[in-house]
Write a protein that binds this DNA or RNA. Structure first.
Length: 599
RNA sequence: GGCCCCGUGGCGCAACUGAAUAGCGCAUCAGAUUUCGGCUCUGAGGGUUGCAGGUUUGAAUCCUGCCGGGGUCACCA
């Protein structure tokens, strides 16, 4: 199946003529003509699919296509010739159209990107959303890459975007780390140990768990049941006490909480910087966990929610095919849902220009977000129509599921280092890095290593699970980030060697088929960006870039560029190369991937 | 069990709103290259798109049922 063409320029230029043709030949008005790119194994540039017209015109498809082809050839100068295969009318478009189109593209800065429009509402994209008791792992990497890329893509499509994360900085899990540090930490700090703050705090979370388990075992040996032991372990009781103290605003506990959280944030920020992601604003659960209660009260009076005898508040979604869902506990305290309702509303208050939100959260929360969005709609918020759960599948390891308890977690920082090391090994064998300082080389290895990782994860449909083998799954050949980076670097090399003025505009030019292929691919870029934004899909950008690179490499292999005698050809081909490289760079920037000038 | 997601050559993936002979990479085999970076290019073999029905001029795509994998059905987050 070929790509349908939604708004391509040729389509617009032919649409009217085609409709007029049908009107003249058959006296029938057709609402829509369907265009698609011509398959490469047929002759032509654009194809009209005749089958849908059969609903309006009785007749045989071949005949209709032929008549329409004749009409188009006579009445539209763009159409040079045509051929008909079954119900497909393949049109050959004149070179001058593609040459003019390329010249426009060549001189368009930020080609494919829209500047934010005044009348478009902004979008808030939430991603990452870590817990402060554990370092970032492979799952967070997928989350971060997806969220960041989607935010960039939406921005490029012409909407203002706010990137945010909600940091889960409160609750019993935080108290566990704090308690363990108090008991066993001997005043250790990130400075004194040289550890990243998130790693240090994570270690104490693990320490708590070890101690907790030891105490359970001891209690069981003293005759308690397992259930009793789990509830009565002294260290757990202490942690619970600490949570109460935190909620009561105990100064000492709050001070410790602030100190340790700051360590974690410093550590996270370092990881984010390495990964190349950022946020415009942060939300903290400690500030938002009480929000939403007022909304629940309000919704109760409106009849959206109802109260059970014990005082808990629920919403009945059975009519929508879902269950009943609690939104406030009997004791009046908030649940996860309460908080998410409150946070969503708070965000709109904070940024009134927002018209929609994207939540980048794993697919185990599909149900939660379905319910959340439904509740917000029932509460009558207009923006609730524009909420999207960017749901993604789990990242599995060959050894099994990624669960921190099982000790099979791939740490985000370690993985990035590993990728950089792999890139270093390969580049030292093959690179053309004469004259690069060590610092420049290290930066390059990072660019390549992270490029491989990011591309590998982003090219896959977010819904699908990824099986990730850190040792073997990153390839540097085929459909990979480094392959595309290599093409970019090679083009830069050509531009460096071009010892003539490449900025002359070439107007009259006969295209080589490979040149035409590349131009057609370049023409698609703006529509791919729009489509990727509409579908929240970085994979569309990744796969487009690969297609472009393949077409370019085929061109590169088939015709000489700098070595060609004709001056116009030399200039045109260099310009074509240059624009391809700039589109690669733009597309990769949407994925958060950098491109090197050499590698 | 109810609901949700996934299932495409040996492996990893693509196919936007149903459209031509289901594309691509890895791996395998056979070739190309006096020259711009051989991490390139050209070609071959390899498929009943999990199974069975249905709708349609036309189905990987839509509908129904089943099979397999995962998730979820907490007054956890």
């Amino acid at each position: 199946m070929r790509h349908k063409i939604q708004q391509m320029q040729i389509h617009n230029l032919l649409d009217t003529t085609a409709k007029e043709g049908i009107l003249e030949i058959y006296q029938i008005e057709i609402p829509k003509i369907e265009f698609q790119e011509t398959r490469k194994d047929f002759d032509g540039d654009i194809t009209i699919v005749v089958f849908p017209l059969l609903k309006f015109i009785k007749g045989n498809p071949f005949e209709i296509a032929t008549k329409l082809g004749e009409y188009l050839k006579e009445n539209n100068t763009l159409v040079e010739s045509f051929n008909v295969v079954k119900g497909f009318l393949n049109l050959v478009i004149a070179d001058h159209y593609f040459v003019n189109s390329f010249n426009k593209i060549y001189h368009t800065h930020n080609y494919g990107f829209e500047t934010p429009k005044q009348d478009e509402k902004s979008v808030m994209v939430e991603y990452s959303s870590p817990n402060t008791n554990k370092p970032l792992h492979l799952g967070h990497i997928r989350n971060n890459l997806l969220g960041y890329a989607v935010a960039e893509i939406i921005a490029a499509s012409g909407k203002k975007v706010y990137k945010t994360q909600i940091i889960n900085d409160r609750g019993i899990h935080i108290c566990k780390s704090m308690l363990a540090w108090q008991k066993f930490g001997n005043g250790e700090t990130p400075e004194s140990t040289g550890l990243k703050g998130d790693k240090l705090v994570g270690n104490y979370y693990v320490k708590f768990d070890q101690e907790y388990k030891a105490q359970i075992t001891a209690l069981i040996n003293n005759g308690k049941t397992e259930e009793e032991a789990k509830k009565q372990a002294p260290i757990l009781l202490e942690a619970q006490k600490m949570l109460l103290q935190w909620e009561a605003g105990n100064e000492e506990v709050i001070a410790l909480w602030k100190k340790m959280n700051q360590w974690v944030y410093d550590g996270f920020n370092q990881s984010y910087k390495e990964l190349g992601v950022n946020f415009d604003t942060n939300y903290y659960e400690s500030n938002t966990y009480l929000l939403g209660k007022d909304v629940v009260a309000d919704g109760l009076s409106k009849g959206v929610f109802y109260k059970k005898e014990d005082g808990s508040v629920w919403i009945d979604l059975t009519e929508e095919g879902l269950d009943e869902k609690i939104v406030l506990r009997a004791d009046g305290t908030a649940v996860y849902m309460t908080q998410d309702i409150g946070t969503a509303i708070q965000r709109i208050k904070d940024f009134p220009d927002i018209g929609g939100m994207v939540y980048t959260v794993g697919n185990e929360q599909d149900y939660h977000f379905k319910v959340l969005f439904l509740i917000l709609k029932k509460l009558g918020f207009s923006w609730a129509e524009n909420l999207y759960h960017l749901s993604y599948g789990m990242v599995d390891l060959p050894s099994g599921k990624m669960k921190s308890r099982e000790g099979t977690v791939v740490d985000a920082d370690d993985l990035m280092v590993e990728m950089t090391n792999t890139a270093r090994e390969i580049s030292q064998e093959l690179g053309k890095l004469d004259g690069y300082s060590n610092e420049e080389k290290e930066k390059l290895y990072k660019t390549i290593g992270l490029g491989a990782l990011k591309y590998y994860i982003l090219k896959v449909d977010p819904k699908k699970r990824i099986l990730f083998d850190p040792k073997e799954s990153i390839d540097f050949n085929g459909n990979t980030g480094p392959f595309i980076q290599y093409t970019y670097a090679r083009i830069q090399s050509i531009i460096r060697k071009a010892d003539f003025d490449i900025e002359n505009t070439i107007a009259n030019y006969t295209l080589h088929p490979k040149e035409k292929d590349v131009i057609k691919q370049l023409q698609n870029f703006p529509f791919v960006v729009q489509n990727a934004a509409k579908n929240f899909s970085p994979a569309l950008i990744a796969n487009y870039t690969y297609e472009l690179v393949k077409d370019y490499n085929s061109f590169y292999q088939t015709v000489p560029i700098l070595g060609v005698h004709d001056k116009n050809q030399k200039i045109f081909r260099t310009q074509l190369s240059k624009k391809v490289s700039s589109v690669i760079k733009s597309a990769f920037s949407l994925l958060g991937i950098e491109v090197p000038n050499r590698m």
